[in-house]
Amino acid sequence: MILVYAEHDRGELDPVTLQAISAAKALDADVQAVVVGHGAKDVAAELAAFGAVSVHVGNHPELLDFTPRAHARAVNALVTANSPRAVIAGGTPRGNEVLGHLAAMRDEPFASECVSIELASGDTAEIVRARWGGNLLDEATVTSSLLIATVQAHAFAATSADAPLSVSEFDVELADGDVLVRVEDRVGSSAGGVGLAEAKVVVSGGRGMDGPDAFVMLEEIAGVIGGAVGCSRVVTSAGWRPHAEQVGQTGTKVAPDLYLACGISGATQHIAGCKSAKTLIAINTDSQAPIMGFADYMVVDNVHTFLPLFIEKLKAASN
């Protein structure tokens, strides 16, 4: 049996959880899901529709909004009771956090961000995990009778596999301090306009923009075509733009139809955040810049002279 930790936000299932279920299904037909917190029951039907043969809903009057250690406590109780071969979750901040707690509670290894999982004979599993934000793959063997792993977002396709809905509820037994750290409030972000992660077009600037002023041009382009402004880390660490706009390994990962990279060199850590773009266009004075190796189209020119020309034509074309 494989247990999947189902991540949801107040009754809304995280899509990577469905990918985790499909990844688990490829290893064992007996995939069960565990889901905890307010709204947990609402997601049971969707979990079954993707193949969870049994959905365990953990209840406790104290467990409403996300409470990482308590969720791990609930998963841990099911692991002790049912001895699954593996516990798998989505490679999201929450999925990694809950399974991190689980691994710490049981002092087991934890393979995060896997892009491939195979259960081998005995206590071993062969995995491939992403390192360096996905720029390096690590082919490894995990030795444990309980594999604890998360799957990298989009590494596995979610495929529906109708299982009849079977829900069993259980009371979560909490330990001291399990509810100390939990979501207490949510505040809106200052970022208006189109969200970077979901944007269909990202107009991004790097050191080549030479300061915050030239970003007005990128805002203008984004405004005309309904996109979001992004940037490199050089830009955020200089304080030219807020960190919420940073694309890359330690910023936001984007997957737009178009990524327009202006004055960005294409360091591996930046590419980690934009390589899923359908089309990448780079504007750079240096035709040999590494970004050109990832680009579909390049304009070898100076952003300060080229962008004003381009904006003029863009505005004319969109009218």
Binding site: L136, L280, S287, G293, Y297, V299
Partner: peptide
Amino acid sequence: LVVPVQEAKGATNLGT
């Protein structure tokens, strides 16, 4: 360890 192969896209140069 494996560095994922990235197919060189062979960017089309749009000029200046």
